[in-house]
Simulated assay, not measured.
Amino acid sequence: MTTPLSTPSQRVTITVRDGVADVRMNRPGKRNALDPAMFEALVSAGEELRTEPGLRVVVLSGEGPDFCAGLDFTAFEAMRNGERLSSSARLRPTDGPAQATGQRAAYVWAELPVPVIAAVHGNALGGGLQIALGADIRIIAPDARLSVRELAWGLVPDMTGSQVLPELVGRDVAKELTFTARIFDGEEAGRIGLATRLDPDPRSAALGMAREIAAHNPHAVRAAKRLLDLAGRTDPAAGFAQEQVEIGRLIGSANQAEAVAARFEKREPRFSDV
């Protein structure tokens, strides 16, 4: 079943098919640059998907030649006068850790209970890269152009990237990329651990991976994301205890029994999302 969903101004399109949401930034003529309407659409898309029935995986990509080239040039012009255009985005209040508009546009993907795969091609610069960092997995084209670009504009990464990037590539590499603001390609992103996988057609690869994940017990997938997001962010005793909580919920559950039955009967499992 295919379900199209809407977001403000159609800057982001969402199509859900068989539990996989295909989410695309939809401003190709402007390289999917971030303006207030795009910020609104990204946050709205993530919040809408949080309550989408039967959702199992999300694939996030950009229409046209780029993933997202970063802030719209009008934002930089406004900054010369001390204005911050992102603050004009109309968003509902949130009690989550990310409060600023740009932070919410990136972190809303980390907050989803299901895996999020970013498919990155073309330019992913500045804020565009930070949005990709909000995903659980990044499949990147070898010739993609990436950059922690903010210092080139006299700024710092402020869309959660300063906190997320060191966890992926190490503190020293994160500092080098940030201090230099240099552009690097997908091949280097793979070497330093920013790319989970390289593929010349990242969207197709991401959708294929999403279908593979969606074929597993959705309750187990969500539990696995919760556990892995704890790793390194809590003390070992708390993490080990949470493992036992999650496994206790799964053993003997209807979906776990179905996973075992399907294996023994050599057939596709029929899982419930309830």
Score class of each variant (00 low, 15 high):
I251D: 07
G134R: 09
A152Q: 15
Q244G: 02
A224L: 14
R182W: 07
Y107P: 00
L133Y: 01
A231S: 11
G54V: 10
W153Y: 15
P200V: 01
L194T: 01
S44V: 13
E111S: 07
D22V: 01
E188D: 01
Q163T: 06
P202R: 06
R149H: 13
G193H: 03
R84C: 03
R267A: 08
P200Y: 02
K266V: 15
F67E: 04
I117S: 00
L250Y: 10
A254I: 09
G62W: 03
D18S: 10
S9E: 09
I131M: 04
Q244H: 06
R17W: 05
V59R: 00
I183F: 10
A261S: 15
A237K: 08
V58H: 02
E212V: 02
L133F: 03
S87I: 03
L55F: 14
L91C: 09
E258Y: 14
V58P: 03
L71Y: 09
F264E: 06
A195I: 03
P93A: 09
V58K: 02
G252Y: 11
G96F: 06
G190R: 03
N255R: 04
R104E: 06
T180W: 02
R50N: 09
L85G: 11
P113E: 15
E167S: 12
E268L: 15
A106S: 14
D66F: 02
P166L: 14
P202W: 07
L71G: 10
R145M: 08
V23H: 05
R80N: 08
L85E: 12
A119G: 04
G170I: 00
A224F: 10
L49R: 08
R50S: 13
D199I: 03
N255F: 02
R149M: 09
R267E: 11
V116D: 03
R90S: 14
T7D: 08
F39T: 12
G96S: 14
V20F: 07
R191M: 08
A89W: 01
I251F: 13
M38K: 08
T196V: 02
M38L: 14
S147E: 12
E40L: 03
T74E: 05
I14F: 04
F264Y: 03
R31T: 04
R249D: 12
E150W: 07
V59K: 01
G239K: 05
A241N: 13
